[in-house]
Design a protein around this nucleic acid. Structure first.
Length: 526
RNA sequence: GGGGCGUUAGCUCAGUCGGUAGAGCAUCGGACUUUUAAUCCGCUGGUCGACGGUUCGAAUCCGUCACGCCCCA
């Protein structure tokens, strides 16, 4: 790949510049246009006989919005012929996707933000000789505004019959194939704007992501949570097991780290009495890139004072079902070859029980909770040795239990060794009040009753220092101020982290995290 | 880090056994007043990812590198 422009491409650009020059010389410079008033849903309804209009369920604010192409069919279902609506003056705008010129008439397909298109019909006899000639300089990729009325074509397609048309923007770069779109995945990510223009399903995916985020906020806000923004630049990035990105702050002449979680700062807010807080924020982890990992990704973390892990589980379950309903209209989703249901209740399985079950009883609690025992399990599985007990447990889990977690499943009660911030299970101090939610073999959320005993927290940080010394570089340095925060007193609290990108993958059927991140990290061209 | 696959016209893709490169779409010219991947006629368009090697001759074989995708660790 190199960025030098080829001769063919140069001639395509030159041809487009000639069309631009022609438009300018006829006083229709596309780049001098400043605005175009588009018809609102209310305008559209007002222009037709009330008796004909289908009932529309939307509030005043929605009525004032421009008509989205995906609503045209619903709003104008009654349009059957050419004549009844000739008095109507609808104004719609979009990007030209295809042109079908037929001498003295022409058809255009326009795209807006939705995955639907609008067909426009232009005729010389309606537009006049000179404007129709100007129209011949409108090409695929250009942005146009059209005024006209709707009718149904011979083939039954709802079509805007143009009475006036203006060019609002010109595409100088040639667009990809109108039928195949842009397939080259590398170019799709590097030039996402082109991907979005020519691949409507990509626009639909990112609009779905936006809807998921706003529904998530709505659902959470309705339960009295406050959205907050904590620092991304930290002296010590903690709250998760991951290597941080390093940066330098000139004003302080200090090396700092980008956050790997929002956990510790959000719990500081719980200590401060904010009681119900959440943050939807970008997290940075200096790790590998694959179909389910991007070095920067979005996480929802939420903390509720006076809740325990079971309250959080119920909240999590309700949130997931709600989002599934909003996005898909139902509770079942296709993920690869599996059909999975988000109808409550989700499956539950104990961490230790699950590993015991899928190892046919070979990997017992006693072996797993003993560092030496876990090491022998790794050997039996033919896996390389781990630097720490916690690392070994993670590897065993990934190999033995995770592959079986297709339907939404809460894995409950995690060993203390891999849960440095979670409260112990009463009467079982080696285990914690924690669960993780898995779907389609992906970890979606992680929640627990938060450890609020500062002495216990200090002890666990100290054991993390030992783990770091054993060579596990993903174990963060202790954040001793966090212990001081707990010494200030934290109510019993439950917290959760949800991987937003993976959740969007599930709900949109994306198989790669790159398909739900607008600008995934790519290596720079040599 | 290891393995596999890919990179050919603006886009989507062919390219046989090693003999100096093809199609469709787009562009350009022409016809066409309800088309919808419009159609019909005609013409253009190439640093075959980069570099090196083998060969009389390389898109094709070999090596190195770049970028990407997939799988594994």
């Amino acid at each position: 790949m190199h960025d030098d422009i080829g001769k063919t491409e140069a001639s395509l650009v030159a041809a487009r510049r000639e069309h631009l020059a022609a438009l300018r010389s006829s006083g229709r410079d596309p780049f001098s246009q400043t605005r175009f008033e588009r018809s609102s849903v209310r305008d559209a309804l007002a222009s037709v006989e009330p008796a004909l209009a289908a009932p529309v369920d939307c509030d005043d604010a929605a009525l004032a919005l421009p008509i989205a192409f995906d609503r045209l069919a619903e709003l104008f279902a009654f349009v059957v012929a050419e004549q009844p609506l000739a008095a109507q003056r609808l104004r719609l705008a979009g990007r030209v996707l295809t042109r079908r010129g037929m001498g003295k008439t022409s058809f255009f397909d326009l795209a807006d933000a939705t995955a639907s298109k609008l067909q426009v019909y232009a005729r010389r006899d309606d537009l006049g000789e000179e404007p129709f000639t100007a129209l011949s300089h409108v090409e695929r990729g250009d942005i146009v505004g059209v005024e006209g009325y709707l009718f149904r074509s011979k083939m039954g397609e709802l079509t805007l019959h143009a009475t006036a048309l203006e060019v609002l923007g010109k595409a100088l770069a040639p667009l990809p194939d109108k039928w195949h779109g842009l397939q080259d995945v590398e170019k799709r990510y590097r030039q996402r704007y082109v991907d979005l223009v020519v691949n409507p399903e990509v626009r639909a995916t990112f609009l779905a992501r936006s809807r998921i985020l706003s529904e998530m906020r709505r659902f959470i806000d309705a339960q009295g949570f406050h959205e907050v923004e904590t620092a991304t630049l930290l002296h010590v990035a903690g709250g998760a097991a991951a290597r941080p990105f390093l940066t330098h702050v000139n004003a302080l002449d200090a090396q700092m780290q980008l956050r790997i979680a929002t956990e510790l700062n959000l719990k500081r807010l719980i200590v401060g009495g904010m009681e119900r807080v959440y943050e939807i924020g970008r997290i940075f982890r200096n790790e590998g890139i694959d179909t389910s990992h991007n070095p920067e990704f979005t996480m929802l973390e939420l903390y509720a004072a006076y809740w325990d892990v079971n309250d959080m589980l119920a909240f999590n379950e309700a949130l997931m079902e709600h989002l599934a309903r909003v996005v898909t209209g139902g509770t079942t989703l296709r993920v690869g070859e599996h059909e999975i249901s988000f109808a409550r209740p989700f499956d539950r399985i104990g961490y230790l029980d699950g590993i015991a079950r899928y190892s046919h009883g070979r990997f017992t609690r006693e072996r797993l909770l003993d560092p030496a025992g876990a090491a022998t399990i790794l050997e039996e599985l033919g896996m390389p040795p781990s630097p720490t007990h916690g690392h070994a447990l993670d590897k065993i889990f990934e190999r033995v239990l995770e592959p079986h977690l297709i339907a939404p499943t809460f894995v409950t009660e995690y060993p203390l060794a891999i849960s440095p911030l979670a409260k112990r299970v009463p009467g079982d101090p080696e285990m914690t009040q924690r669960y993780e939610l898995f779907c389609a073999q992906m970890e979606i959320s992680n929640a627990f009753s938060e450890l609020n005993d500062p002495d216990d927290q200090r002890t666990r940080f100290e054991s993390q220092i030992a783990q770091r010394a054993q060579g596990d570089e993903e174990i963060p340095e202790p954040d001793w101020d966090f212990v001081r925060a707990l010494e200030t007193g934290m109510p019993p609290t439950a917290g959760i982290g949800i991987g937003v990108d993976r959740l969007v993958m599930l709900l949109t059927g994306a198989s790669s995290i790159r398909d739900v991140i607008l600008f995934p990290l790519q290596r720079q061209h040599g």
